[in-house]
């Protein structure tokens, strides 16, 4: 966890997910599975030990018909900046073997599979359950191994994995930019697989520090909120909703409190 002095000027990649647009189709999950060689079980009934880097939750306002409303909420790793945004995300600060690290150049929380020894402390620390454990060795159906992405290393039994914001795509884009003697990446040069796969355009991805990127404006929208913001995890995944009950479901509030009206709600301004 060596902090760089110039990280204030670095990129901070993040995501804005418009819940008003999400239909819960699951394309983001499928795209992610294919892109990141995410293993699956022969029987996926028990969701508590399946691996997915992005999951879709179905929320309802718990009102009877005809007032019933449904919202689908995709949840990848939040790539938390941690308390005070110093990169001490809940997981990075607890990993005893530096197997997960915060990259001050991109704001992405990495997972080093060959370093992880499977203590699962990071999973206990993550309030979003974004971290998944490889309870089994990955087994793909016959011939499917030939279709695995060569850019992402498959994981072994006994280690933790999680969403990397498709970091290999960032590396490929950086390589290309380097050859073209550029330092900065264009917005469309580095996009995650889930953002690419979303048919309704609900997922927007980009640099939260870059005024030219769509996420920069979107995150400052009055409709924007983050999950469990009050825990001060400082997630880099934002959500947009026009529904008050959805916003309320994204965090915990005492009976008299109203979302968005709390003095200490952390909002970002640059």
């Amino acid at each position: 966890m060596k902090e760089k002095n110039d990280h204030k000027h670095a990129n901070r990649y993040g995501m804005v997910i418009d819940l008003d647009k999400c239909t819960g189709c699951g394309s983001c999950m499928v795209g992610c599975y294919a892109e990141n060689n995410v293993p699956f079980k022969p029987d996926e009934t028990n969701k508590l030990d399946s691996i997915n880097w992005i999951r879709i939750f179905k929320l309802t306002n718990k009102k009877p018909y005809p007032d019933t409303e449904v919202c689908y909420l995709p949840m990848p790793c939040m790539q938390c900046d941690g308390i005070g945004k110093h990169g001490h995300s809940p997981c990075v600060s607890v990993c005893p073997a530096v197997a997960t690290d915060y990259d001050y150049d991109t704001g992405i929380v990495s997972q080093i599979y060959t370093r992880c020894f499977g203590c699962r402390y990071c999973m206990a620390a993550c309030p979003y359950h974004a971290r998944k454990f490889n309870w089994w060795d990955p087994v793909w159906p016959a011939d499917m191994e030939k279709y695995l992405s060569p850019n992402v290393s498959p994981r072994m039994r006994g280690v933790v994995e999680k969403c990397s914001f498709c970091f290999h795509r960032h590396q490929l884009a950086k390589d290309k930019a380097y050859l073209e003697e550029r330092k900065e990446l264009e917005e469309d040069e580095y996009q995650t697989a889930c953002a690419d796969a979303c048919p309704t355009g609900a997922i927007t991805f980009g640099d939260l520090n870059n005024k030219d990127h769509a996420v920069y404006q979107l995150k400052n929208s009055p409709k924007a909120f983050r999950l469990l913001e009050r825990l001060e995890t400082n997630p880099k995944v934002y959500y947009l909703t026009s529904k008050e009950w959805v916003r309320r479901a994204g965090d915990n509030y005492l009976a008299h409190e109203e979302p968005g009206k709390l003095n200490h709600t952390v909002k970002e301004h640059h």
Partner: peptide, 22 residues
């Protein structure tokens, strides 16, 4: 308890001094 018992020594060798578990 650890998923990769043969890597148990990483907790000493690659110690993260900020972790309570270390």
């Amino acid at each position: 308890d650890i998923g990769q018992p043969l890597r148990g020594w990483f907790i000493f060798w690659h110690a993260n001094v900020h972790s309570m578990l270390t």
